[in-house]
Computed example of a mutant assay.
Amino acid sequence: MAASTESTAAELATIADNIGEYRSRVAALAEAHIGTDRDDLVGAIHEAERQIRVAERGLLRAVKTA
């Protein structure tokens, strides 16, 4: 059972790392549009980045629990 839990924790940690990288990439996409007339796009990107951050934190909590 412990090996299975360790494997699950390792997989969750890897996924959380990948999601963290995607979060950074998504956030960077907003930079080019800040200060333009595309506040709608910037807002949508920031909201997506926030939701990805929530998912990342959830996965990290699962890693700690595993």
Rank of each mutant, 00 (worst) to 15 (best):
T8V: 14
E49Y: 06
L29H: 08
A2L: 15
A16W: 00
V26F: 02
A44C: 09
L59T: 02
A16M: 01
D40N: 15
T14Q: 08
I45Y: 03
A44K: 15
N18C: 05
A48W: 10
E47Q: 12
G58H: 05
I15Q: 02
V63E: 00
A32T: 12
R57F: 03
R61A: 12
I19V: 13
S4V: 13
Q51T: 04
K64R: 12
E47V: 09
I45T: 09
L41Y: 09
R38T: 10
A28G: 06
I45M: 08
R61V: 07
H33S: 12
E47R: 12
A55F: 00
E31L: 12
L41K: 05
A44H: 14
D37Q: 11
R25I: 10
G58M: 06
E49Q: 12
A44F: 07
R25K: 10
H46T: 08
D39Q: 15
G20V: 05
R23G: 08
R38I: 04
D39E: 15
A62N: 05
E56H: 09
A48E: 06
A55K: 01
E6W: 02
Q51E: 14
G58S: 13
A62E: 11
A48Q: 07
H33C: 09
V54G: 00
L12R: 00
H46A: 10
A9H: 01
G43P: 10
A32G: 10
G43Q: 07
A9K: 09
A48T: 13
A27M: 06
A3F: 14
A16P: 01
A55P: 00
E47A: 14
A62T: 05
K64V: 04
V26E: 02
T8A: 14
V42P: 03
L41D: 06
E11W: 09
A2T: 15
E56K: 04
I34L: 11
I45C: 07
A55V: 05
A2S: 15
L12I: 05
R57D: 08
K64G: 11
I19F: 07
R57I: 13
G35P: 02
R50T: 09
A30M: 04
E56V: 00
E47G: 03
A55R: 00
I45E: 03
L29Y: 04
A13V: 00
N18M: 10
S4Q: 12
R57S: 09
R53S: 13
L41C: 04
V26T: 08
A2W: 11
E6F: 09
A10E: 09
A62K: 07
L59K: 01
L12F: 10
